[in-house]
Amino acid sequence: MENRNPGTPLDLEWVAATRINRPAVERRVASLPGRRSVKKDWQAAWLLRAISCMDLTTLSGDDTPGNVRRLCAKARQPVRQDILDALEIPKLTVGAVCVYHDMIAPAVEALAGSGIPVAAVSTGFPAGLSPFHLRVAEIKESVKAGAQEIDIVLSRRKVLLQDWQGIYDEVRAFREACGDAHLKTILATGELGTLTNVARASLVCMMAGADFIKTSTGKEPTNATLGNSLIMARQIRDFHERTGHVVGFKPAGGIRTAKQSLDGLILMKEELGVAWTKPDRYRIGASSLLSDIERQLEHHVTGRYSAYNRHPMA
């Protein structure tokens, strides 16, 4: 992101005035997939853009340095070279690689010289229920280890209790602990109860200095949806119009098909403009998605669909 979001003082009147009309959101979302589509060369270009915005992610209990190194190799070369050559694309990389704290070191080593940042999930991911001082310390340790982006988990309890001052203070402290690293706040939208809560939590996090707001941990029953993405994108737009500060957006969890990635990019372009379809302002939290996009690109080049084993993740 070219400019950090410095945040603003907490404006509780603005927060209280923020409300969401669910039927209007549902109508807008229902109209999007059928009303907008891209084909042929344009579709290939948009799919390549989606790859450049991906945070390739591995957050498994059995992660090993070897697994992470292979994922980083995929991040450096996300699409087979013969496909890139056919599309006349000289170079393509993903937006970042996202790992747990103890896998930061092998990821940093494997990505050295690539320009691809390492993102680390933090603050007691995915529940965010560890003691506050330990969550702050975890951020500092991850930054010290080389993480350039920190994905923190919002306290859902504080959102459900409408404790906006508590949310603001917490995220502000996390922002300070990040130092020069970018802060991405995970709202866990599927656990916030109402769409109005999603909108208000998005706004408070941006006021507190979040550089990105992110839908989900990927561990909730409901993760990224077009409805939540629409709400969060419009809060980003309102915040930018009022303050001039730029905040990025990251849908995460449940985005598995090339079509879904295109729907997300179209939503960003229509709601926020072309600038929010680039990796400094837009990320997609996914890994399995990449294989489907590669298959679509190979079909575009050869006219034939290939098996998934021709596009391994690692």
Rank of each mutant, 00 (worst) to 15 (best):
R27H: 13
L267A: 08
Q43S: 13
K250N: 02
L203P: 01
A147F: 05
M1D: 08
N21K: 12
G7L: 10
R310F: 06
D102E: 13
R70Q: 12
R237H: 09
D238C: 01
R135Q: 10
I167N: 01
S291V: 13
L262R: 00
K259L: 05
G166R: 04
V97I: 04
L48K: 12
L226P: 01
R49A: 04
K74S: 05
R35I: 07
S122M: 08
S142Y: 02
I104L: 01
K278M: 10
G264V: 05
L84F: 06
I51L: 13
E241N: 11
W42K: 05
A252E: 03
I116T: 01
I284V: 06
L226Q: 04
T217F: 13
I139W: 02
V204S: 02
V15M: 01
E149P: 05
V97M: 02
V108R: 15
D62Y: 07
H300K: 12
P65T: 13
T277A: 00
F174L: 05
Y305E: 13
I231D: 04
R36S: 12
E109F: 03
T18H: 13
R70V: 07
D292G: 11
E271L: 15
R175K: 14
D292H: 13
S60L: 09
L71H: 05
M1W: 07
K214W: 04
D102T: 11
M206L: 06
V204Q: 01
V204E: 00
R135C: 12
P131Q: 09
F239W: 03
V247L: 02
G254P: 12
S306L: 15
A224Q: 03
L84S: 06
A199F: 09
K278D: 02
D151F: 06
R69S: 15
Q165V: 12
A24K: 14
Y308I: 09
K214P: 01
L129F: 12
G264A: 09
I293W: 01
I51F: 09
R22W: 08
I51R: 08
P9R: 13
S130H: 14
L297I: 14
L203Q: 07
A199Q: 04
A314W: 11
H299V: 09
W276Q: 02
L187H: 04
V153I: 15
L192T: 05
L56S: 07
S229K: 15
D102V: 15
R172H: 09
A45I: 04
D55M: 03
T215N: 08
P6V: 08
D62N: 10
A120D: 01
P106D: 11
S287I: 08
N21A: 09
A50G: 05
A24D: 11
G113W: 09
A181Q: 14
K74E: 04
I83N: 06
E270W: 07
P33T: 05
Q81K: 10
M313V: 11
E191Q: 14
